[in-house]
């Protein structure tokens, strides 16, 4: 497996994530699109560590930080979904066209 092949697979995951995050109406499905983008980023980071850094653990640290980003994204996303459902009874983006609460 070459670095090029790994980056192409990561790019495919990222592209599918971009499609999902932009096209889906349900908040939870938008979150899944974001997660898929981060999935591709983690794959790219891991393969860069394995094939270009000579085994320096700093590359793996970057992936650990990416996983933190993913956990924070999930926690904030779930909290926002609950909060906005409680205030607006909205579960899709079309229901929150007004900013004023």
């Amino acid at each position: 497996m070459t670095l090029q092949a790994l980056i192409v697979v990561a790019a495919a995951l990222f592209g599918i994530g971009v499609y999902g995050a932009l096209s889906q109406q349900s908040f939870v499905m938008i979150m899944m699109g974001l997660e898929l983008m981060l999935n591709g980023t983690i794959l790219a980071g891991g393969s860069m560590w394995a094939l270009t850094t000579g085994g320096s653990p700093k590359g793996q640290m970057l992936v650990v930080v990416l996983m933190t980003v993913m956990a924070v994204e999930a926690a904030m996303g779930f909290a926002l979904v609950i909060g906005i459902y409680r205030v607006r009874k909205a579960d899709i983006t079309e229901k929150i066209k007004r900013l004023k609460g």
Binding site: I7, A11, F14, V18, Q25, S26, T52
Partner: peptide, 30 residues
């Protein structure tokens, strides 16, 4: 449950091609 499906498809394909081109044509240290 989708909105602006064609725009989203274009955005996804463009980001895939951009990142894949970066991976294929950039010179990374081995």
């Amino acid at each position: 449950m989708v909105h602006r499906n064609s725009v989203a498809i274009v955005a996804g394909v463009v980001s895939f091609l951009a990142i894949a081109a970066l991976g294929l044509f950039a010179r990374f240290p081995v």
